[in-house]
Amino acid sequence: MLKYTTVEKNDFLLVSLEGDLDIEGTEVVNEELIPELVHYHSINISLEKVPFVDSSGMGLLISLVNTLKEQNVKITISDVQDDVFEVFELIQLPEILGEEVFI
């Protein structure tokens, strides 16, 4: 089950996701995470503790980034595990979200 923790520094919010980013995380992301994040100007999401993803999970990530971008929130994603990043690259996620999102 997906969990997350946040650390706030001024306007900057560091979000650490923990667990598999999959279909079971739909509620967590859509109903808790997104409403909370829209209040910040700058956000980094760390995927350090995300070992697996599925297609629904990637769909969530896309909708999360796109929603925040619409709200003019600066968002970056960091610490993606190698295997997970391989999946991201296969489906060209960096091109979809913008190369600058991944740091």
Partner: peptide
């Protein structure tokens, strides 16, 4: 792919 979970295929 090692990091890809395909179990949501059966649901969605």
């Amino acid at each position: 792919s090692p990091a890809f979970k395909s179990n949501d295929f059966s649901i969605t």
